[in-house]
Amino acid sequence: MTIVNVKELKKAALEIRKNLLKLCSIQSIHIGGDLSITDVMTVLWQYQMNYNPSNIRDENRDRFVLSKGHASAVTSFNQAAIGCFSTEDVFKEYATDEGRFSMHSCNLVNPYVEVSTGSLGHGFPVACGMAAALKLKKNFNSRVYVVMGDGEQSEGSIWEAVMNAVHYKLGNLVAIIDFNKLEADGNIDDITSLGNIANKYRVFGWNVCEFDGNDINTIKDYFDKLPPANSDIPTVFICHTIKGKGISFMENNVRWHAGKITEEQYKECIKELEYNFSC
């Protein structure tokens, strides 16, 4: 079910955040990077993508690859929201033995995962291959959306693929970078800075869009303005986000790259989310 109204999308994102916090009170999850990309993922899954849960092999569907595989929870809750399975299923099965949902997305147990991921720097080049395959099949309507982390940009394989995507004119490829400025060990700028990441993609020949990745209105605008899938230049969304977005004690705090909250914290989090995001 597609949501076209910005106010409704904001509500949907709030719902995703509440689900994430609830799950985080049951299991340790990558909550920081889930919350930073929640708004983009909500617009992507609940507005933008052509994806029918009852026909998941439809040749005309848009493809989604989660290159930052640890953002599996925010993906699963969005897939639940469009009817792939129930939200309750995610709570029940997450991080259980052979459950469909866990720390990273796995196609062996969850058919809604196009590509199993977890190790960084893999999903993006695979997505490039898929985008090239779509062109070869003369499927000029579908796009491949791939969500990467900012820390993930350090992987050499990313830059191999950055060059190829331009060379093979993969205008049907939309790369999304969750630029939340933090990775597992701390600030990216203190580890290996990305410098001007937008310029880097630009000089490699990409169509670069840089915007506030926690603003639903803006995100929707940029999706609306995407060049057609049959164009020749790949697009990258550099989404400036806040790690842990929406929860004051988690925001910009590397401690919440991954973790679990107490029942007490959970109640506070829900109050804060409602205060911050209720429309």
């Binding site: 196009e114 695979v126 490039c128 291959g129 898929m130 090239a132 099949k137 050499g156 693929a161 190829n164």
Partner: peptide
Amino acid sequence: VGIAEQNMVSFAAGLAHE
């Protein structure tokens, strides 16, 4: 894909997915 074996294999995986 140029001298980029990691990309070569991942790119091939993407083609095979399709």
